[in-house]
Amino acid sequence: MRIDVHTHVVPPDLPDFATSLGDPRWPVFRLEGSTGRLWKDGAEVRAVPEAAWSVDRRLDHMDKVGVDVQVLSPLPPLTVDWADESYGFAFCAQVNYGIAEMVQRAPSRLAGLGMVPLQDCERAICALEDAHGLGLKGVQIGTQGGTRELDDPQIRDFFARAAELGMTILVHPLILGASVPWTTRISGLPLTFGLGMTTDTAIAAAALVLGGVTAELPDLRICLAHGGGTFVWALPRIAHAWAMTNDVPLAQQMRNVYVDTVVYDRANLDHLIRVLGPDRVIWGTDYPLPAAAEQTGELLAGLPDEHAAAVSGGNAARLLGLSP
């Protein structure tokens, strides 16, 4: 099987809280023919093709490129972990219901990840449980829980509940546009896309691994988007410093951490497989972002036979509980 774990959708029937609440920070999705436009803060942040909301168009693409299963997750700008908790919960619920409806249209070809208002642990757990009840396989979160880092004790119960339910957590950076909110030294699209997003992912990964979340919850399943960002590349230095004050090897803290293959370069993919092992690298394309989807698909060509089946589908099937 070829299972793409990193694809995004925008359910078309989203509440327009930007209008009803008079708050332009809320994402608004508008259809213009075969193009969907996502607006936030009064500006268009993403234009997506019909496959972002149409199951039929998505299946057409999957058949064309030879993908057996896609795992649908919310387009990252839909994340509302800054919002009032009650409205955030309502927005997440509508997104999750929309994704579940898409999956139900083609349950043998699609699986889904929902979203939660992680700024409020109790509501996040409720949203997680609702997503589980809808048949979703996990949830996508950002690199923080509101303003809290992911190892904050106040959101530990959320991760514990995810482990109990067997719900996979996809950690995805949320940086938009050409600036990074936590520094003025990274700006412009190349650096924001290349350094901002990958560093943001690495900080989140460090909180989960070095902050004890993955060790405390060995049944928790974490998948880091974009190859884990810069975290895997920095592991030798991190592990060296970790060993100075810790008896447990850092690698043991990472046994339940997976990464996808959205790294744009075959040498990078080979590095991930070498460092983490072929059983914890999972094919993903960032579809419907065209360049990422095309380049990531090409990376699988020529993988050794002993790695190809695992990376292209076997690892994802095991992680998400998907049947061949």
Rank of each mutant, 00 (worst) to 15 (best):
M254Q: 13
M62E: 09
R30V: 15
I125G: 07
R156N: 09
I3P: 12
D23V: 00
D68K: 04
H132F: 12
L170D: 10
T35Q: 12
T184V: 10
Q119E: 15
M167H: 05
F29W: 14
R274M: 06
R105A: 15
Y264F: 15
E298C: 02
C223K: 08
T199C: 09
A163Q: 01
I155E: 03
Q252F: 00
G302Q: 03
G98V: 05
L289H: 15
H226S: 13
P249E: 00
S86P: 06
G228Y: 07
N315V: 05
A207V: 00
A127R: 05
D60K: 11
E122Q: 12
T7E: 14
A291P: 02
P15V: 03
T183W: 09
S108K: 14
H61K: 08
P290G: 10
Q295F: 14
E85V: 11
A243L: 02
M62G: 08
D219C: 02
V55H: 09
P49N: 06
V45W: 06
L191H: 14
I3L: 15
D265M: 04
D16S: 09
V116K: 10
R30T: 10
D23R: 00
R123N: 01
C92H: 07
G284N: 00
L21N: 05
Q119I: 08
P11W: 05
D200A: 02
W82S: 07
G166D: 03
